[in-house]
Design a protein around this nucleic acid. Structure first.
Lengths: 160, 160
DNA sequence: TATTGTTATACTCTATAACTATA
DNA sequence: TATAGTTATAGAGTATAACAATA
């Protein structure tokens, strides 16, 4: 054991290195579908529950409402979401998936499945479960909100 | 098991989420020392082998020589590195750590140690070894270069 | 002609503030 | 007075090209 651990033996470096790699590869996999990872996240949220306001969606994904505007503009331009009038609040929009999105979503999910399978292909089934278990526990211990990606989370500049 | 795996069960998402978190936290730990993660990486490289050229250092870290200029400017302004004339090539600089850097480096390494310890504090000793082993194998299988962080690696725009 | 270090430029991202229409 | 959505702006970060000195 050396005095100074090499980066290769540091869990922090390994996580950061692999995590960045995983994000890059996932972005590549989604690109042919005209989507970015954050679009996939938003579509997934909408698939789980249609009709929420932009603010609610932004809260759920941990990003600022200003960024949600641009995200929805992208998806609306591609005909994947619709902004409808909110029944109870005339300031708000109710956001819905389109039929096109419901056709596209399974393809995006398949891309995510393939991405995951590719990432862990060097591990056997038990090791995969182990990896997921360890990562989930680290995330919980670190106080990360399940399913919320830190890239999107707006934080005061001085704090970062 | 649901039809569509939640993000929380996807190794790709977990790695990306935790990796980003780890990078953020490490940056926070280094900030009091006036360093950013990439500075730590460069100082570590220099601690292992002084006197290399900027191009060699850039290659070792996987970044473009243009970025190495700014990185060295930072560290030189803080009195942590010296650009000396290269004995064999008058185009090149030979880069050396200063005494100040050699005093600072142990503190930075301690910060990295604490960062790592904090990240994995929820795991017992055996689980920590397991985690590191699994991550190393994933990295090797993915073809990642040991110790090279993808954030720094310059890639053609269309490819990313 | 190629390479080292440097500088300048343009482009992408994102944080922040400010505006409007409603509540 | 506060909130939902929107727009504009500025700042940080980074990729690319171009340059002078030297090989």
């Amino acid at each position: 054991m050396p005095d100074v651990p090499a980066l290769t033996d540091r869990p922090g470096f390994l996580l950061s290195q692999l995590g960045h790699h995983a994000a890059d590869r996932f972005a590549e996999r989604l690109r042919p579908l005209g989507l970015r990872p954050r679009h996939f996240g938003l579509l997934s949220h909408l698939a789980a529950a249609d009709g929420r306001t932009q603010q609610q969606l932004a809260d759920a994904m941990g990003l600022h409402r200003n960024q949600m505007v641009a995200l929805l503009d992208d998806l609306e331009a591609r005909g994947l979401v619709e902004r409808r009038r909110h029944p109870d609040d005339r300031r708000a929009h109710a956001v819905f998936l389109t039929e096109t999105a419901r056709e596209l979503l399974p393809r995006a999910q398949r891309a995510a499945d393939e991405h995951d399978a590719d990432l862990v292909r060097a591990l056997d089934a038990q090791e995969r479960r182990q990896l997921i278990d360890l990562l989930q526990r680290l995330g919980e211990d670190a106080g990360l909100t399940a399913g919320v990606h830190p890239t999107l989370t707006a934080a005061p500049r001085a704090t970062r």
